[in-house]
C-alpha cells in the first residue's frame, strides 16, 4: 500500500491578465497544478510564458483575476500575507540587498523572518559555511559577480527555515561549484525537513537532473506535467542531429538538398529530429565527400526536455534565451 502524497501547493483555474499599452495580455490562462510535499517541482518554459507571473501569485505578491492558490492548507488569494510565513522566495532582483555585505544581507533577512538577533546571526554563519561563501561574507553584494550575488541571495532565502522554497532561476550566472552548493543545500533540506522546492527555470539540463516533476508552461497554459523521463518518453525513438556547416550548406549533395526543407536552421546550424536509422544514414552521407569538406561539426544526441517541449507544440522556437 503506497501512501498518497500530500499536497504542498494546489493551484486551480488561475487567470491573470495584464494591460500594456491598450492591449490585453493573458499571462496566465487557466493554470491548474498540484505540487506534492517534499518534491522538487519545476516550471519550465520560454521567456514570457507566464512562469514568473504564476510564481508572483503563489508568493502573494500578485492577486489573481480568477482561480485559487492553496499553500500547505492556507488560501493565499484570500490571505496573501500568510505566504511570507510559509515560504522563502528568491526573486530575480537583489536591489534591496545590493549595498549590504553578504553576511548582513542574510542576517537582516533572517531578522525580518522573525528570528532573534542571536539566532539570525548563528544561522547566517552556518549557511555561509554551507555554501562556501566565507571569502565573500564581508563584501557588498553590489561588488560581486552575477553568480556570486545570486548565491548570496540564495543564502538569505535559507535563513529561517520554511517548508516551501520558491526559487526563480536560482543558478543564473553561477559557476559549477556554486550550482553544486545550491543543489546540495536543497537536497539536505529535503532530507532533513522534507522541504518542498518550486523552481522556475529555462535550463533544460538542470531541469532534467534536479527535478522530480516538471510543468511545461507555454503562452500562459500548462501544456504538460510529468516527470522529466515521462516527458522525454513523448519523443522516444527519436534522436537529434545537429549539423554545423563551415560556410554555406553544400546543396549540391543530394542527401543534403533533401534535408534543406526539413531542418530547423539557426545560422550555419541545421537541427533535425529523426529516427536513429535515418540519422545513421545521414551521418554516413555527410561524413564523406564534398559534404564532409563543408561540415564544421556534427552531434548526434538523445532527446532532451527541449525536444519534448517542441513536440508538445511549444509556440516559440525553443526554451533557451
Amino acid at each position: 500500500m503506497s501512501k498518497a502524497p500530500q499536497s504542498c501547493c494546489t493551484v486551480s483555474g488561475l487567470v491573470k491578465t495584464y494591460r500594456t499599452g491598450g492591449t490585453e495580455v493573458r499571462a496566465n490562462d487557466g493554470i491548474d497544478l498540484v505540487v506534492h510535499r517534499g518534491e522538487v517541482f519545476g516550471l519550465l518554459g520560454p521567456n514570457g510564458a507566464g512562469k514568473s507571473t504564476l510564481v508572483r501569485q503563489l508568493t502573494g505578491l500578485l492577486r489573481p483575476d480568477a482561480g485559487s492558490v492553496e499553500l500547505l492548507g492556507h488560501d493565499v488569494v484570500r490571505h496573501p500575507e500568510r505566504a511570507a510565513r510559509l515560504l522563502g522566495y528568491l526573486g530575480q532582483e537583489s536591489t534591496a540587498l545590493d549595498e549590504l555585505t553578504v553576511a548582513l544581507a542574510a542576517e537582516t533577512t533572517g531578522r525580518l523572518r522573525g528570528l532573534s538577533r542571536a539566532a539570525a546571526r548563528a544561522r547566517t554563519a552556518e549557511v555561509i559555511t554551507e555554501l562556501g561563501l566565507e571569502p565573500l561574507a564581508h563584501r557588498p553584494l553590489a561588488k560581486l559577480s552575477g553568480g556570486q550575488r545570486r548565491l548570496a541571495c540564495f543564502a538569505a532565502v535559507l535563513i529561517g527555515e520554511r517548508p516551501l522554497l520558491v526559487l526563480d532561476e536560482p543558478t543564473t550566472g553561477m559557476d559549477p561549484v556554486a550550482r553544486r552548493a545550491v543543489w546540495s543545500a536543497v537536497d539536505r533540506r529535503r532530507a532533513e525537513h522534507g522541504t518542498t522546492v518550486l523552481l522556475v527555470t529555462h535550463n533544460v539540463i538542470e531541469a532534467e537532473t534536479v527535478l522530480d516533476r516538471v510543468a511545461v508552461i507555454d503562452a500562459g497554459k500548462v501544456i504538460a506535467c510529468d516527470t522529466p523521463g515521462g516527458l522525454k518518453a513523448l519523443v522516444d525513438g527519436h534522436v537529434r542531429l545537429d549539423l554545423v556547416w563551415r560556410t554555406d550548406a553544400p546543396l549540391g549533395v543530394p542527401a543534403v538538398a533533401a534535408l534543406a526543407d526539413r531542418a530547423e536552421r539557426t545560422g550555419r546550424r541545421w537541427t533535425l529530429r529523426t529516427t536513429p536509422d535515418e540519422a545513421r544514414e545521414l551521418v554516413a552521407a555527410v561524413t564523406t565527400g564534398p559534404a564532409f569538406a563543408a561540415l564544421d561539426d556534427f552531434t548526434l544526441a538523445t532527446p532532451t526536455l527541449e525536444d519534448a517541449y517542441l513536440r508538445l507544440g511549444g509556440r516559440t522556437g525553443g526554451l533557451a534565451r
Binding site: 536591489t95 534591496a96 522573525g114
Partner: peptide, 9 residues
C-alpha cells in the same frame, strides 16, 4: 526590490 520585503513577514 520591494518584493524582497513583501515576501518577508
Amino acid at each position: 526590490g520591494l518584493d524582497h520585503y513583501a515576501t518577508l513577514p
